[in-house]
Amino acid sequence: MAVTPPTVAIWTSVFDVYLVLGTLVGIVVISVLTYSVFTKPKVKAEVGPKRSSERKKKIRAVILTLITISILTTVELDTFSATSLVTVPSDPANSMTIQVVGQQFFWTFIYPNGYAQVGNLTIPVGETIILNITSKDVFHSFAIQQLDVAKDAIPGRYNQLWLEVPTPSQYSIICKELCGVGHAFMTAELYAVNASTFNAWYGSLQTKGG
């Protein structure tokens, strides 16, 4: 399996399996229940009510359990087919590592050259970016919902996530863990720009301490 950074397409393909099976099971099961609940019970015959035998019941139970287990196994294997979405290789080729520091109530991004930038993260398209995420104060959670990536920012810990944006675009970075009064506004912007634009900007930076 080729190890590539997470893409929306992979997440969506995993999600679709859950969605199709989940919806199907939900509709079937709720329909059966609703049909039988809204059926008037038949007046019971005095003699020999037609109840299914114990043996039939056991077979029915086994079949239903097997169906359940096979559906659950299918979705679980579906998840295991996409572990690249949550694991970060130690040193992927051609990558840039950026430090991300969460703090009440803003995000700071520190580039390899030491340049620190608050509130927006500029990256080149087509390059693997590794984010090394931590927090200076309380528990935060770094997330770009439209790119299907997220990792908690925890004091004393460094969590990695990786991403690659194929075309120039802009996304919102949010905090997903309640972190205090400014939580809702702890946002930043992700700008993915052409490699040439990025290199020109990055080369012109004055090195600053984080």
Partner: peptide, 25 residues
């Protein structure tokens, strides 16, 4: 009925891949 819907959506959340997006949403 409501438990069936809640339970099936819970299966979605058992996926550590899908949970990246669902977590905290």
């Amino acid at each position: 009925v409501l438990f069936i819907i809640g339970g099936i959506s819970g299966v979605f959340l058992s996926s550590f891949v899908l949970d990246v997006v669902f977590r905290g949403s």
